[in-house]
Design a protein around this nucleic acid. Sequence first.
DNA 1: GTAACGTTTTTGTGATCACATTATTCTCTC
DNA 2: GAGAGAATAATGTGATCACAAAAACGTTAC
Lengths: 243, 243
Amino acid sequence: MKPKRLADFELLMLEKSDSLKTNQWVYQLLRTNLLCGKIEPGLPLTIRGLAEALNVSPMPVREALHRLACEGAVEVKNNRRVIVPQMTVEKFNELCELRILLETHAAEGASPYIREQHITQLQEIDARIDSAIERGDSVNISLINQEFHRTLYSANPFQISIPLIESVWLQLGPFSQVAISKLEKTYIIDRHIEAINALKQHNTFALRCAIEADIRDGIASIKSVEGIHGYFKGNTLALPLAK
Amino acid sequence: MKPKRLADFELLMLEKSDSLKTNQWVYQLLRTNLLCGKIEPGLPLTIRGLAEALNVSPMPVREALHRLACEGAVEVKNNRRVIVPQMTVEKFNELCELRILLETHAAEGASPYIREQHITQLQEIDARIDSAIERGDSVNISLINQEFHRTLYSANPFQISIPLIESVWLQLGPFSQVAISKLEKTYIIDRHIEAINALKQHNTFALRCAIEADIRDGIASIKSVEGIHGYFKGNTLALPLAK
DNA sequence: GTAACGTTTTTGTGATCACATTATTCTCTC
DNA sequence: GAGAGAATAATGTGATCACAAAAACGTTAC
């Protein structure tokens, strides 16, 4: 079997607005594609290859890849090859624990700053998530879900943990998306509503619980995917590609 | 008063070994200087200026600065100017909380993997810290102290929170160092010994407590510095430069 | 047919240049 | 003398080129 190449992949394109610098456009495009699982784990990424695919010079791609490497979204091997990292069971569990640790903390820190406008904003985002679930649009479920969390934590004007949290998301993203896309039916208890209610009451403890439950639900969904173990690295089961 | 310029600063130099790529050398050099407080908060950093000071082309400096920005060590303003970020009271408190959150977690995760060799390694590092305290070498106290923590957490082979922790250190570093250098006498209860004892007994709870106490001691030292409020941004007190 | 070797191609890094944007400095006006 | 505006200098970004290291390929020997 021939190894997959970059050219074989359809990248999700974002149009480039003029206000956006080229390197930021490339960065966001790659980032989104990674989070959506469009670029699958193990695939080697080359500067020139991406530059050609995106019709830009190698320079902005170089910077974007370096930044993604710094955030843990891609992995630079000793050979200075850049690949999308593969997931192991241990890494997955640790990343989940870090999500809970950081996000419950961030939620607690945001709680005192929540105003009416935040509540309505969060409700609006939650409605969009429901709509995406309705359509079975797994990519947008993830993206809008992240928007919900980011909006909540950002209510704290002195927030500085969001970059750390986004780094964890980036490391979990590609794998989660691959797994979730195999899930026919997404059954969801709406923890976001629980969180919003906790915010209304300024009940910090209930908020922490809702956030933790939300994250754990997501983990449980992923773990419920049939044959999930085959998607982890270092497993002898057939990988999806070989099927 | 003329604003300080990059050229006015004596950079702590590191020799460049051949195995090290130029960009990594520049990165580590800048990183160390930031952690040591050699480059003071508020100072604007320019690519060409640093390139000239280090006798390299602008390209490796560009990459190093971008990476540092990604880690939060330097701040890119809207004007695309790069400066060493200034500390606020709120940011400082939040960073300290994050340190405790992440590092107690990392310590707990490392605990089951601790072997005899780790213990002796940690004891050796701790001895070097004592020696640095003896000499009053505040720069090395910080650097070796970080080595202690990093070594401990790295015992866990599935460790992935260290990059996050290092990011927090980088954000705290410049400010802490400036503050600590004003501290004549560093009185230290050796929490590291407490941590090592907890490790020997595989007492995870005691380990968490020792790590948290160690971090809180450091915070208390900084807060005990006379006139510390003057070093925070947005304060009308005279900054050390104007003294 | 398979493994080892040498050649060719590809890749990342560093350097240099061009350009648009932003600071800085100088000059003119009041 | 001080402030507004224009001219000049400096800066970050993107593009292109040169080079060394690494991967991919084809060839040869067994």
